[in-house]
Design a protein around this nucleic acid. Structure first.
Lengths: 121, 121
DNA sequence: TATATTGTGCATACACAACATACACAATTT
DNA sequence: AAATTGTGTATGTTGTGTATGCACAATATA
């Protein structure tokens, strides 16, 4: 497991975990069937509580990205390349829709948004 | 004052106020010298507490967008068109930088980002 | 100077993130 | 079959930050 959490971030730790792992799953970095580390081990490695790990894992399962079985563990779900690409773009566009609301409130046009995007990307 | 607050939003009320009013100032919708409504009046209109208004106004002053004087009121600061445009783009780009971090975590390229942006804008 | 109007400060209620610990279930070993 | 180990789960507690009401201080104006 390769994640980095920031205690100074304004985002909750469990959401940081969810964001990073869901990205790794949908980019294929974590293949289908891959076993996530046991929550105790993950908690110890990241120096955080078991419950915070569990909350992140819960969100991942709710999104259908992993399957979890008591006594066995948590495993990355299986997807085709097409499914993964579609899910990735869906997640990004959903986020983007909220982001652009903010830009639009300043009267920013699509062309201006693209220009600024090129600058910061 | 023309603002709409959502109690179901995940964003704090004071931040919703800050976002909307700062946008109205930097787009020229609220001209320099324009008097913001007294916090009591604003609180009554929006059905929220005086303190929440005050917190939003505080952030606006901290950003240099308004000046506030006890006993007198709060007034929109004076800016040239160039200053306003620059401040607007700065605020948007600052926000955009955080937004793109999320996109990049999915391995999204600039070209892909622009394509998706066109779809959702 | 008196009075009304404005912003400010303080103590509190509430929601949620994060925590330590104890529990229940499943797989493996003996 | 029973014990043991490993897994996720549930309970209760603490801390941080949003939002609140009410009393106070400073300013404007008559």
């Amino acid at each position: 497991m390769n994640v980095a959490i920031s205690n100074t971030s304004e985002k909750p730790i469990y959401q940081q975990l969810f964001d990073q792992i869901s990205a790794q799953i949908l980019t294929g970095e974590l293949p289908g069937g891959y076993p996530l580390p046991p929550i105790r081990q993950a908690a110890q490695e990241l120096r955080i509580s078991v419950i915070t790990i569990k909350k992140a894992w819960e969100e991942l399962e709710r999104s259908g990205l992993i399957t979890t079985t008591t006594g066995k563990g948590c495993f990355v779900a299986d997807f085709s390349s097409e499914e993964m690409l579609r899910m990735r773009n869906d997640m990004i566009m959903k986020q983007m829709a909220g982001d652009t609301d903010y830009y639009k409130s300043f009267g920013l046009s699509l062309e201006e948004a693209i220009e600024l995007l090129k600058k910061v990307y």
